[in-house]
Amino acid sequence: MKPLTEKLYTIPVIRRIVQLIMVGGLGKWAFYGIFRCPFLVPFVNCQSCPVLTCWGRLTAYFYTAWLIIPISAILVGRAFCGWVCPVGFVNQVLGKAAIFKLRSRKKILRFGQLGMALLIVACAYIYFIMDNPRMMIPIRTGEVFNSIYLSFQHASPFWLARTIFIIVLIIGSLIVANAWCRFICPAGGLFEIVKKISLFGIRKTSACDNCDACLRVCEMGTRPEEMNCNNCGSCLHVCHNNAIYWGKKKHE
């Protein structure tokens, strides 16, 4: 039987395997949501979308996804971001080569999360007040990338601005590690709110002496239970005081 520490070392490997599987399962939906969805806020009007090839039009697929996501948030907090989300996986891969890791407990970094709050408000306004308008005519002629090119040519300035904004910030993870996931993603912002009541997660005990060993290995530049922790499990084996564990919060 493998010792516990050896098992913990295998968690990042298992996570990458799960992420690759999820890229195969959800990657097309994420790709279409960014590049082909004609609505300003993607992923929420799939049942009335004219893009016939998007997986979101499959009723079972669409409603299963939107049922599992909130349930997962209540059970395991922001683990969806660290284990399932295809965009999160792309961000993490790009973040490996990022110029600035921003692994710090400086309070000024907390202001970065205002980007999430602002985008949540903007998305809510577009969806509830503007009724999430269709701002692009998805043109389908020939192969996928040519269709996307033609769709971009005939899209409204608002849709172009939205899409370019997302692409630039995702690519921005080459400058600031996981910039989109840490400071912008509205879904991540909603997960941050719900994870406060989540049942399970990566926790730290009162034995923590703030050595920041966990912070130095964290892709999201954080510590267990703190802002942007996505329960990836990479820090479970690094604490010299064994102050990090997986499970329910202990009342000490």
Score class of each variant (00 low, 15 high):
97 A>C: 04
98 A>M: 02
100 F>Y: 14
100 F>L: 10
101 K>C: 01
102 L>I: 05
102 L>G: 05
102 L>P: 05
104 S>I: 00
104 S>R: 02
104 S>C: 02
105 R>D: 06
105 R>M: 06
107 K>D: 08
108 I>K: 13
109 L>V: 01
110 R>K: 09
110 R>G: 11
112 G>W: 01
112 G>D: 11
113 Q>D: 05
114 L>G: 08
115 G>N: 09
116 M>I: 03
116 M>K: 15
119 L>E: 12
120 I>R: 01
120 I>D: 02
121 V>F: 08
122 A>F: 14
122 A>W: 14
123 C>E: 15
123 C>Y: 15
125 Y>E: 09
126 I>G: 04
127 Y>V: 15
129 I>D: 10
129 I>A: 13
129 I>N: 08
130 M>C: 12
131 D>T: 12
131 D>W: 07
134 R>W: 01
135 M>A: 14
136 M>R: 14
137 I>H: 13
138 P>E: 09
139 I>M: 03
139 I>A: 01
139 I>T: 09
140 R>S: 13
140 R>Q: 14
141 T>K: 11
142 G>T: 07
142 G>C: 03
143 E>W: 11
144 V>Q: 10
147 S>I: 11
148 I>E: 13
148 I>Q: 09
149 Y>C: 11
149 Y>I: 15
150 L>E: 15
150 L>Q: 15
150 L>R: 11
152 F>I: 14
152 F>V: 11
153 Q>H: 06
154 H>T: 14
158 F>E: 13
163 T>A: 09
163 T>M: 14
164 I>W: 09
164 I>T: 12
165 F>M: 13
166 I>K: 02
166 I>E: 08
167 I>S: 01
168 V>I: 14
168 V>N: 05
168 V>F: 10
168 V>G: 03
169 L>Q: 08
169 L>Y: 04
171 I>P: 01
173 S>L: 07
174 L>R: 00
175 I>Y: 10
176 V>Y: 09
177 A>R: 09
177 A>F: 02
177 A>N: 11
177 A>P: 09
178 N>W: 04
178 N>T: 11
179 A>R: 04
179 A>G: 04
181 C>M: 07
181 C>I: 02
184 I>F: 09
189 G>I: 06
191 F>T: 11
193 I>F: 08
193 I>C: 04
195 K>R: 15
196 K>M: 08
